[in-house]
Write a protein that binds this DNA or RNA. Structure first.
Lengths: 226, 226
DNA sequence: ACCTGAACACCGTTCAAGT
DNA sequence: ACCTGAACACCGTTCAAGT
């Protein structure tokens, strides 16, 4: 009977790696990176903290699993019938939006280099780069450049979302930053001050894609020399 | 006399923000990100942990200050007489090498977006982009693309250095990763497997610069359309 | 003004004990 | 096999008390 009661409390489902990762994602989304705690997780799953260690080795492994789950779900974009350029944009935007929705993955992607979540993105980018007609010797460089740019933006955006709280308005953030830039030392930060105004009415996604296009242009410029 | 003894113990210098940051950098370099502890720092400075809080608000602020100090020192590269392209390469390489020497800044740069360390790099990149002749409306995009790529690579490299320990050989790491890639599922990771061989004899710095050149090509291709 | 160090409120992780 | 929850060894941070 006691066992029956416990089952009921946790909705009949027994503890499993899947349920743990799912709960971790929920915790990370609602409470941020600092919110993921074995104690909080245990409470959500109606167990003790020790139970989680039966299914998961580490907090690091748990974070990786959570990140992987989110990234994998965005990598399903259908790219059939699109040009390689369009496919790259779609892929990149998928990662961008995923980080926007789950800022914590941005931070973790940057620290978990060639493990599965990142590798997945690399693979799909690479296929499109190959479709672009890039010679074998340049494939790695081209795919890496795209990947690293995407991860770089992701890290920055994750930090933005973290630093200003999840409720903060994008335009509000941009205005704040823009104001701060305009107050910088005119000599030491001449360039930054000059572009501060452009920041104010900015679409992050558009800007992100403009960077992707810049790299794509660089890649294809090599293919058809003037 | 007691005061005199204490002074002697800490080499006569009183506690100061500067000394704290300096000690923090030393701790981070020798013991990694996990090694920076207020207790360990206090021991190094021959005080109690509370004393540090008089000069520094936060652990986060301390990390920022440490990162800033390291980045600022690399931003002094003399770019006079160089072409903008050369200057961008020199700047980028400066950041790359700094992260190689202090892997912990890679992680922190990625999470500290528009604060001073990153802004410094952005400013200097921007000046060179402007020197390239990029029109005002595209300045921000071009400088951002370069910056984000650099930060992306930095984050990955920092993670590499962290995951494999500071003593690990670069070529050893590459061999390990390359082997792992070749063992991947042939269908799911067709592209990654195909380029795994290229990874084996790879120069990280050369590869990094190749990515920079790709973006530079993209930037200048816009200037002189075919 | 600046430093001290005990104390508080947390962590991740382990492990004997249970079922 | 799987779960429990107390316990261990740490953290960052605060704060009354000292000089």
């Amino acid at each position: 009977m006691v066992t029956g009661e416990r089952r009921a409390r946790r909705r009949g489902e027994p503890l499993s790696r899947e349920r743990i990762v799912e709960a971790a994602i929920g915790l990370l989304d609602s409470a941020g990176e600092g919110g993921l705690t074995f104690r909080a997780l245990a409470e959500r799953l109606v167990t003790g903290p020790g139970a989680i260690y039966w299914h998961v080795t580490d907090k690091d492994e748990l974070l990786s699993a959570a990140t992987d789950a989110v990234v994998a779900s965005t990598m399903t974009t259908d790219t059939a019938g699109a040009t390689p350029q369009e496919a790259v944009r779609a892929l990149a935007l998928g990662v961008f939006d995923a980080i926007d929705a789950h800022p914590w993955i941005g931070t973790h992607l940057a620290r978990d280099p060639w493990r599965s979540p990142v590798l997945r993105v690399f693979e799909h980018l690479g296929r499109q780069v190959r479709a672009l007609g890039v010679p074998d010797t340049d494939l790695f460089t081209a795919a890496s450049a795209l990947l690293n740019y995407i991860l770089g933006v992701g890290g920055q955006n994750a930090a933005d979302g973290r630093g200003y709280g999840p409720d903060a308005n994008r335009t509000e953030i941009l205005t704040t930053v823009s104001d701060a830039w305009e107050a910088l030392d005119p000599e030491e930060y001449a360039f930054t001050r000059a572009v501060a105004g452009q920041l104010r009415d900015h679409d992050d996604r558009v800007e992100f894609l403009a960077g992707i296009d810049l790299i794509l242009t660089g890649i294809t410029a090599r293919l058809n020399p003037a």
